[in-house]
Nucleic acid binder design. Structure first.
Lengths: 208, 208
DNA sequence: CAACTAATTTATCTTAAATTCGAAAACGTC
DNA sequence: GACGTTTTCGAATTTAAGATAAATTAGTTG
C-alpha cells in the first residue's frame, strides 16, 4: 500500500480534510464533464484540462477513473437530497401536504438546473453506470425516493390525491418530468421561475 | 468507390430493398444495445454478438459506427412519430382536444415501453450524440415536437388549459415524464396499463 | 461445372485513452 | 538555504476498440 492510498484512506475516515483546493477543482470539473457528456464519454484528459492539471495528477487524489466518478455521483445524490430535505425542514410545522410537494418540486429543480452540476451528473448518468458503481449509490438513492414516497403518501392520506392514481407510477412520472429538465431547459430560452411555477402547477393539479 | 458502396447507395435510392435479414438483425441489435448502454458505451462487438455475426460484417452494411447509430436513431424517431400520428389519425373527427392528448400519451408510452427499442434508443441518447449526428436528426425531431405543440395549442384554444401554464415548459415537462419512463418502468413491477392510465390522468388534470 | 458475386470471416493495423512510473518542482520547516 | 514531504508532470506502457485487408464460403448464373 502506497503513501498515497494511506492519505486517501485518512481523508475518508476522519473529516479532518483540508480538502485540497485541487481535489475540489478536479471534482467540480468531473461533475461538469460528466453532466455534459455522460459516463462513457467522460475523458480524464478533459477533466484534467478543466481543472487545470495534467491527467496523471488525478491519480494523486483518486485511485481510478471509476473512483472519481463514483465520488461525483455520491456527492450529487447527497446534495440533491440534502437540499430538498432542508427546504422541507424550513417550512412551518403543519404546512399542508400539497404545499410541501410544491416545495420539493421547487428545490429539486433549483439544484438540478441552477445549483449543482453534481446533481445533473446523477440524473443523467445513473442509468448508464456499471453495476458495481450503481450498487454503491443505491442506499442513498433509495432514501431520496423514500422522501418522495412519503410526501405523496401523506398527501393521499389527507385525501388530496385522486384515488385513481397508481402512487408509484405517479411519483416516478413526476420525478421523471423533473429529471428530464436538464435535457431541454436553457436559461436563455425561459426563466427558471417559469419552469418551476409551471412544474408546481402541473404537479399540484395533476395529483389532486 | 467499391462494389459495396454502390449497393448501399442503391438501397437508399430505390425502395427495392430486399432488406437483408442480416442487416435488420444488426439494426435491431444496435437499437437494443444503444437503448441499454447509451451512445458511447455501445460497442460494435456487442452489437455483432447480439446479431450473431462478427464485427467486421457490420461494415458490409454500414460505412461506420456513426452511420449505423445514426440510422438506428432515425428509424426510432420516425417510428415514434408515425405511431403517435396514426393513433391520432384513427380518432373520430371532432374528438375533444383533451382526448387527443390522452391518445398521444398512450401511444408514446406504448412505443417507448413496449414496441420499440429504437424509440428508447432515441430518448435515451439524443442528448449525448455528437453534434453532426444530432444535426441529421433535427428536422424529424422538430416535427414530433411540433405535433405536441399543436396538441397543446388546440387544447388551450379551446380553453381547456389553465392559463397560468407556460405552454412550452408544460409540454417539455410532460414529454419528460414520458421519456423518463424507460429509466424506471419494468414489466415485472407494474402493468403497462397502470402506467398509461396514471400518466393520462396526471397529464389531463395537470393541464386542465 | 466454372466463374462470378455477395456475404462473412480471420487476421492485422491504428489510434485513443487509462494507467503506471520515476523524476522534478513546490512547499514548509528547521 | 539544505531537507524531507507533498504535489505535479512527462514519458512509457497497456488495453480496448474501430477500422481495413485479405481470404473464404456459399449461392447463382451462364
Amino acid at each position: 500500500m502506497t503513501r498515497r492510498d494511506d492519505m486517501a484512506a485518512d481523508r475518508r475516515r476522519n473529516g479532518s480534510d483540508t480538502p485540497s483546493a485541487t481535489r475540489d477543482r478536479i471534482l467540480d470539473a468531473a461533475a461538469r464533464i460528466l453532466s455534459e457528456k455522460g459516463y462513457s464519454a467522460t475523458r480524464l484528459a478533459d477533466i484534467a484540462q478543466l481543472a487545470e492539471v495534467r491527467a496523471p495528477a488525478l491519480y494523486y487524489y483518486f485511485s481510478s477513473r471509476e473512483e472519481l466518478i463514483a465520488e461525483v455521483m455520491a456527492v450529487g445524490q447527497r446534495r440533491l437530497r440534502e437540499h430538498v430535505e432542508s427546504a422541507l425542514a424550513a417550512l412551518p410545522p403543519g404546512t399542508a401536504p400539497m404545499d410541501r410537494i410544491d416545495t420539493a418540486v421547487q428545490a429539486h429543480l433549483q439544484v438540478e438546473l441552477q445549483l449543482s452540476d453534481f446533481a445533473t451528473a446523477v440524473t443523467r448518468n445513473l442509468g448508464q453506470l456499471p453495476d458495481d458503481v450503481r450498487e454503491r449509490l443505491r442506499s442513498e438513492g433509495s432514501e431520496y425516493i423514500g422522501l418522495w414516497r412519503r410526501l405523496l403518501e401523506q398527501a393521499r392520506a389527507a385525501g388530496l390525491i385522486r384515488p385513481d392514481l397508481d402512487l408509484r407510477a405517479a411519483r416516478m412520472l413526476v420525478m421523471g418530468a423533473l429529471n428530464w429538465t436538464p435535457e431541454w431547459w436553457n436559461p436563455r430560452q425561459g426563466s427558471l421561475t417559469d419552469v418551476i411555477d409551471t412544474a408546481k402547477s402541473l404537479v399540484r393539479h395533476g395529483l389532486g
